[in-house]
Structures are given as C-alpha cells and as structure tokens.
Design a protein around this nucleic acid. Structure first.
Lengths: 223, 223
DNA sequence: CGTTGGTTTGAGACAGCTCAAGAACGGTGG
DNA sequence: CCACCGTTCTTGAGCTGTCTCAAACCAACG
C-alpha cells in the first residue's frame, strides 16, 4: 500500500510538499485501487492526503443504505485534514488513484513554526467550507435539473481536458452527491442531451461534451 | 447603529476579546432590531461578529423567492469570518440582538503575530465546516420528520435554559433551514406533540418542552 | 376591535422515488 | 476472437412524500 516513493516537492503549487516546506516531515505516495477504502468514518485522522492521479469521494452513510457524498476530490485536491482527532467522513477511491500522504502531526508542527504552512492549512479549511456551503444551497433548495446542471458545470470547471468531461464517477455517485436517485440523474442528463445542450463521446455515457454552456447555465440560474 | 460600548474582554471564553488578545484592536457593540439586516450577500467582509444576546441567521437567496438558511447563531457564536474579501451569505437578526464587532483586518494582523489568535480563527472555520457538513447530510438524505427531529435536538443542545426551548425563529426560518416548507415543519411538530414527545408552553408554539428525548432521537436515528 | 403576522390543518397536485425491464458496456475465460 | 456474466445506464409506469393552495385560528398591537 505505502510505496515510499520520493516526491518532487516543487512539482505543483499548493502541494503537500509546499505545505510541509521547511519541516523535517516526508510526504510519500500510495496507490488505491478502484473502490478501495482510503479511510473510514470515525477513523483516527492520522494523515492528510493529496490526489496525484485519479479521483476520490468523501461520504457518510445513514440507515437504510442511504449515502451522502460530501465532495469529489480530483488531481491536486487536498483532503482528509481535520481539526478534531478523527475523520468525520469516509473516503474511497473512485478509480485507481495515486495519493500523496503526509503525517498530520508533522503538518501541525510545521504550521506552528511556519506562517506559510499555517496560512495554507487555513486556506484549505475555508475552501472546503465554501464548497460545503454551496452544497447546502444546492441540496436544500434546488430542483433535480438544477442540481444536475450545477454538477456538470462544476465538473466542467474542474476536470475539463480537451473540451471533454471524462467523469470518473458513476451515476450512483452523482446521485448520492446531489441527494437524488440514479434514475433522476439519468433522466436529467438524457433531457439535456435531447435538447442539444450536451452529447456523449463514444457509447460509455461517462464522456460528455458540453455543446452549449450558456444554456446549461440557464438550467441553474438561481446559483 | 454602532454604539461604541466598552466590552469586558474577559467575560466569556472564546470571545472576540480573547481572539484579539494582544492586538491594539478594539471590539465594540451594536444592536440590531428584529429582522434587521446585518450584512448582505457579497458585501465586503469588514467585520467579524459575536452574538451577545438574541439570535442571528445566515442565508442565501435563490430565484423564485427561495431561501436557504445556512446556520443559526446564538449567544456566544462567532460569525462573519471569511477567507475571501466578501461575505458569501447574508446575515440578519431574528429578534432584537446585540452583537460584538471587531475589524477583520485587525484580527488578521493579530493572527499573524499571536499563535493563539490564529488557532482560534482556524478553530472557528473548522467548526463552521463541521456544521455545514452536518447540514449536507441532513438536506441530502433525511426525511422531513428526521430533519425536524434533528433540528429540535440541535436546539435542545444549544439554547436549553430551564428545560425549555424558547425558539427565536419562526416556522419559516426553520423550514428554510431544513429545506422544506412551513407546512411540513408544522405537521411534523404537531405529530410529535400528538405522540407525546413534546408539548407547548402557553399558546405561542415557540416555547417547547421536550418530554421524551430518547424517542425524539429515534426519529433521527440515521444521524 | 380591526389588522397583521404567525401557525395549523385539510385537500389536491406534482416532482421525484420505487419498481421493473431491457440495453450497453467491460472484464474474464475459453 | 467470441460467449458469458456482472455492472452500469436508460427508460417506462405507477406510487408517495412533500409541496401548493386555501381556509381558519390565534396572539399581539395599534
């Protein structure tokens, strides 16, 4: 699991390498297979993670098999940083994923002596907060079509490469992120396709081209 | 509006006075009337606030008159701290409310030199994050009865004085917090009353005694 | 008292859910 | 290469929890 790869600390801005800048801590890499658990709800929060390749989701489970996904984490995203001693969400890889890990404790020590590290930690926490607040609005007051449009626009902004969305998550993941059922997601996407707002590449229906961003936005005006 | 009262900085733990400990900044007080706006969405985030008496809600508006309340802030709560330059929610007083204000800028300066202040800021941000994550779960995957039960239990833990809940917010506020309609809130509370889980004091229906916390919790097991 | 704002309650409507079937895909083994 | 099988996705039909609309009630207040 832990592969002990040496990582290039200067490779990307706002990386864990940068976070731990001047401390003696050593980040290392690990690979998780598709659908492999990274940590469970209430597990001790021992590490902070950054996605190198692949994708991760964080979620909570409720009785009756209900699941709520709080966030998807894509390349470059930092996740798993908690204030308390335990994780409040579980995390699992959506596809084969390489993450970079650093001991939380060493990060916190670094934060004590290095203002830059501290600032980055605060910045991570508040950007997570901003995202969660957006989710609250979406889940509480948006229609299913608005939810799906908002999701596609979010992903369009985050993982567009070459004008195409290559979604790493299933319809079930999307549904559990948006607080609806898979059928509702499927119907909304199908309607957008029928109306010429988007089209599928190949047959997989996970690779999407957005043909009309303006009209897609109009399905999520209230944002 | 700004009354320039001198505040006792040692009055309560985790107060703004404590936050700004060693800096030269001077917190002061202000009173807002019932339903008075404290700041609007996208207003510059000039101050950080702490509720002294009364209650405040933070919310966003959507098209079609939809509103989502992100949080209620009761006595002692700190709100309005943003990472970016503007507020991402609006804030208004639910009832006549006294808040304590401090310039955000002076707080940030204090955070730069005082590790304690910095720690408290981070702690405020992460406790807001924890709350928002709880809301995501509630809004995304709970039934209306579970939502109302969760709300009552939250308030029971936060503003119980003398074994009675004296709610400062209307049914509409509760509804916009839980992502349902006022009628749905009313029906759920009525059912809990019929089943003997709670009862009203007087006729107002804003003062509630929880008779059976265990059974109330059973309406929100999945939490 | 009349008015206003807040709450409850009922009846009907509808968005999204459930259940079910079929189609398309990806992997596996022959 | 193909046949098989499990998983994912789509689509349809009916159901239901919540919303909408409406009316009545009550307390507070001028």
């Amino acid at each position: 699991m832990f592969m002990g790869l040496a990582l290039d600390r200067a490779s990307r801005p706002n990386s864990l390498g940068e976070l731990s800048l001047t401390s003696g801590s050593s980040p290392f890499a690990s690979i998780y297979e598709k659908r492999q658990k990274i940590y469970g709800e209430s597990d001790p929060a021992e590490y902070v993670y950054q996605v190198q390749t692949g994708a991760v989701c964080r979620f909570k489970l409720l009785s009756g098999g209900r699941r709520q996904i709080g966030a998807f984490h894509l390349r470059g995203d930092i996740f798993g940083f908690e204030n308390g001693p335990i994780h409040r969400f579980a995390a699992e890889a959506l596809v084969k994923t390489m993450v970079c890990l650093i001991k939380r404790q060493s990060l916190e020590e670094a934060a004590g002596t290095n203002a830059n590290v501290f600032h980055n930690l605060l910045s991570t926490a508040t950007s997570n907060l901003r995202h969660a607040e957006g989710q609250v609005l979406l889940l509480g007051r948006k229609s299913s079509m608005e939810k799906v449009a908002a999701f596609l626009l979010e992903m369009d902004g985050r993982l567009t490469s070459a004008g195409m969305l290559s979604l790493p998550m299933t319809r079930r993941d999307i549904a559990d992120y948006l607080g609806v059922t898979i059928e509702t997601v499927s119907r909304a996407v199908s309607q957008l396709q029928r109306e010429g707002v988007l089209e599928f590449i190949g047959k997989t229906h996970r690779e999407i081209v957005i043909l009309d961003r303006l009209r897609l936005s109009s399905f999520d005006m209230p944002s």
